[in-house]
Design a protein around this nucleic acid. Sequence first.
DNA 1: AAGAACTCCTGTTGGC
DNA 2: TGCCAACAGGAGTTCT
Length: 294
Amino acid sequence: MPELPEVETVRLGLLPFMVGKTIEGVEQRRADLRFPLPKDFAARLTGRRIEAMDRRAKYILARLDEGEVLVMHLGMTGRFTVDEANGAAVTPGVFAHPGTEGARHEHIVFHLKDGAAIRYADARRFGYMALVPESEMAEHPLFKGLGLEPLGDDFTPQALASVLAGAKTPLKAALLDQRRIAGLGNIYVCEALYAARLSPVRLARTIVTKDGRPTERCVRLCEAIKQVLTDAIAAGGSSLRDYAHADGSLGRFQYSFKVYGREGKPCPGDDCQGVVKRLVQSGRSTFYCPSCQR
DNA sequence: AAGAACTCCTGTTGGC
DNA sequence: TGCCAACAGGAGTTCT
């Protein structure tokens, strides 16, 4: 569920509570999430100090002293809440659920030495955590095949062209493929394609020249991806099912959706009379305007 | 070997 | 109101 902007929002929210802190203990309430949790997970974390928290694609990376990295992926329903040392509860991100709803699926709690607790709940358990030595990150299966970082300096029209060149798959599927670009999900692919006025059905290779150079469409798409993600992060990400409970810590970008979830509504384009259409591509909903996205 | 379909799991929603 | 199918922000595995 969380895509890059939501993961980034969660990371920023956790940052002040976790960086520089030492883990006093870990409650692990089940052996696995999507995958088995690391062997001796709690023991290996206990006593470690969190030196930094970074993000790669949709992964949050907590860099620990002694050289390991705690890798966290939220899957579809992963969410963190923080019990502050002073007893207040904070939700650093966009996935707050009111009341006690989340407690049933609370699988992991990190207790910090300063008294704070970082709680991880995940109803569907598509999230996962791993412990990877810093030196093995680049070669680790989770990261080895990961594609371009869309907000990185090296995400250029040429770089985008190079990962789309020759791809016979529709643009929608290509942009969801984390081996090409890492961090986009269903919402932001739809929104970026709309912003670039490109059809999700168009074959990816058709925005790359025969010799692998970006076409004007590819340049537009590159810009659109960066813009949509940047705007979404600035808005604190998107909160869908829980947006009605907005309390200031929830994302606001859902109010800026142009096409996502807007089937049957008029295209928001200034001089477009089109209607937003929904179709299914590789089992996922795609929303787009057939009139102005070509 | 690329690309699409299936799969994991639980909760919510919309249509009858 | 109740029931149930469809669907949900992801992505690894298995098929074709």
